[in-house]
Design a protein around this nucleic acid. Structure first.
Lengths: 274, 274
DNA sequence: CAACGAGGGTTCAAATAATGAAACAATATT
DNA sequence: AATATTGTTTCATTATTTGAACCCTCGTTG
């Protein structure tokens, strides 16, 4: 592996949880030589990708990454496409709508939008969403390269009592996703949060992210799920379109079927209560 | 210079204006060998810092930078410190308040009062502010490393009839900034916009950004300027503090003097009109 | 359509930069 | 004050980088 790559991969040790790392800690994490690690870190610091606290000498993410992210967003404006859709999705469902993008092996929250309707809302703090334990994650896994599943299987962390942590459970869940066109996870990541997610596609027609609705689990019922599904389909189609991608034919067909059957049912309910 | 650094510095060629760069173009830009450049780019691509269009083979900023920016923001929440202050500043002055951070040789907008509400996450959508043509820019230049001035002098773009585009004009303007503690630019960047900016400092006690108020030029008078100055000083002190920095003694003294003399004048006016 | 040019990608010996053990320095910790 | 831990520099050895040259593909041109 190239020196450049080895050095840059040090950045991957940082996360919201582990946001400050010292030289000694890097040594332990990577198992590499101290002097080498030191020089890598120095190089990263010189470029502004990292920043060293002058007092404690721990390293943290540097200011340069903000500029790079700015350029990225101006080049590939994912956010812009999402921002038009999320508020509507949140309002229509009355729940928290959020979108994430797939980066390498992790799903990273892009933006979220809470509805104004309910005061007891679901709040997302975590930037990374576990692929095996969220509706977004399942939706992505089901349509992504099988290699991603392989990597994911290596670490099926348990978040709640409902988290599915075995290979079999996950594989059958993905089978279901492919059948119904949605990733649904009931309290698998956070207690009392019910999530429904759908995949998003970019111009390469591969999975590029997901959009999802997170509801308070006690508030959800068949009607709410039906509504959420309809809105999610609309949102996913729109975002995928704005990203220059297109929904795979098989999935698009499933969604169309879902829409027509659900809209019947939904109209029926509305007429019955009217 | 280390290989790592040389490779990473390729990222600096990207900007909002030049967001896609081919291998051949890199070769011309850097004057370096093709094979070497190719390997650098490949390494950057492997880490996700860059992304190569599979069809055209041009390189663009990769998705990994979004994750890094997210970590950066969760580690050093510049926005958080700014968000507490900007709305108050905007309300007190009745004008547009905005903050920017210095990244390398450019000043990038962080947030402004109008757009803070839903862009809660990481990425910046606002363009770069020219250092020589805005109140923010002058404020930063006056207190930044002289090297920054050197770089800035290389490209004094004209934006309006009022833009100062000569070395002498700029240098004397900076002299003024250091005397009065404010960067003031009357329609130097946009027609009919009057800007007043002050520098912000981070934990290394170097200039890290600026906060400024942009007013409609026809609406500004001595009173409004006095008010804006008072509010800017308060805001800058607070943000600098929240960033772990401190205002340099000489500047802090100037600001204190300004505050006391202006508050006198301002009280006088209020009493006169009351 | 053959020749040409431009750009992307690969090869290989020579040159150079990376490596890691060890020494040293500066802080924490006991 | 003694000791342990962490950060930084040195230097001979080693492995990686380097760049000229070459190949391949594609689009253009005489």
């Amino acid at each position: 592996m190239s020196t450049v790559r080895k050095a840059i991969e040090l950045l991957n040790w940082f996360s919201a949880d582990r946001s400050q790392i010292s030289l000694a800690e890097f040594q332990r994490l990577t198992g590499r030589d101290k002097a080498t690690t030191y020089r890598y870190l120095t190089a990263l610091e010189e470029t502004g990708l990292l920043e060293k606290d002058p007092v404690t000498r721990v390293y943290r993410m540097g200011p340069a990454v903000l500029r790079l992210a700015h350029v990225r967003e101006s080049t590939v404006p994912r956010r812009a496409g999402v921002r038009l859709v999320l508020p509507r999705l949140a309002e229509a469902t009355g729940e928290l709508a959020h979108a994430s993008i797939l980066q390498g092996h992790s799903l990273v929250a892009l933006t979220d939008h809470a509805s104004t309707r309910h005061s007891a809302r679901v709040v997302l703090d975590e930037p990374e969403l576990p692929l095996h334990a969220t509706g977004s994650g399942l939706a992505v896994l089901a349509y992504a390269d099988p290699a991603l599943l392989k990597v994911t299987l290596k670490n099926l962390k348990r978040y709640t009592d409902h988290t599915q942590t075995t290979r079999n459970e996950l594989e059958s869940a993905l089978e279901t996703v492919r059948e119904i066109g949605f990733g649904i996870v009931d309290q698998g990541y956070e207690e009392n949060v019910f999530g429904i997610g759908v995949p998003l596609f970019d111009s390469s027609d591969r999975v590029a992210g997901s959009v999802a609705v997170a509801s308070v689990a006690t508030r959800i019922d068949a009607n709410a799920i039906a509504l959420t599904k309809c809105e999610l389909i609309k949102a996913a189609r729109q975002i995928t379109h704005s990203w220059g991608g297109s929904v795979p034919d098989d999935l698009d067909q499933i969604w169309s079927d879902t829409l027509s059957s659900l809209s019947n049912e939904f109209n029926f309910h509305r007429e019955a209560t009217a």
